[in-house]
Simulated scan of single mutants.
Amino acid sequence: MLRFVHRHSALILPEELKNYFYSKRELLKKLQDGVNEVIKYWYNKKKGSNYEAGVIAVIHTFCGD
Rank of each mutant, 00 (worst) to 15 (best):
L2F: 04
E16L: 01
F62P: 00
C63L: 13
L17I: 03
A57W: 06
N19S: 11
L11M: 08
K30E: 14
V5Q: 11
I12K: 03
R3H: 04
G48W: 03
K40E: 01
A53N: 14
L13Y: 01
K45A: 11
V35Q: 00
K18W: 04
K18A: 03
Y51M: 08
A57H: 08
L2W: 00
I39C: 14
G64Q: 12
P14F: 03
L27Y: 06
V58Q: 11
F62K: 07
E52F: 05
E52R: 11
S49D: 05
R3Y: 03
N19G: 06
G34E: 03
S9R: 06
L11A: 10
Y51D: 15
M1T: 13
G64V: 04
L31T: 07
T61F: 04
R3I: 03
L27H: 07
E26V: 10
A57V: 13
K46E: 04
K18V: 08
V58T: 12
F62W: 09
G48N: 04
G48K: 02
T61E: 09
L11H: 08
E26G: 07
K24F: 09
R3C: 03
K47W: 04
L28Q: 00
V35H: 00
I56V: 15
K18C: 06
K18D: 00
N19E: 11
V58N: 09
F4E: 08
R3L: 05
N44M: 08
L31D: 05
L11R: 06
S49Y: 01
K47H: 11
G54F: 13
Y22A: 15
Y43N: 02
Y22D: 15
Y51R: 08
Y20Q: 10
P14W: 01
K47V: 12
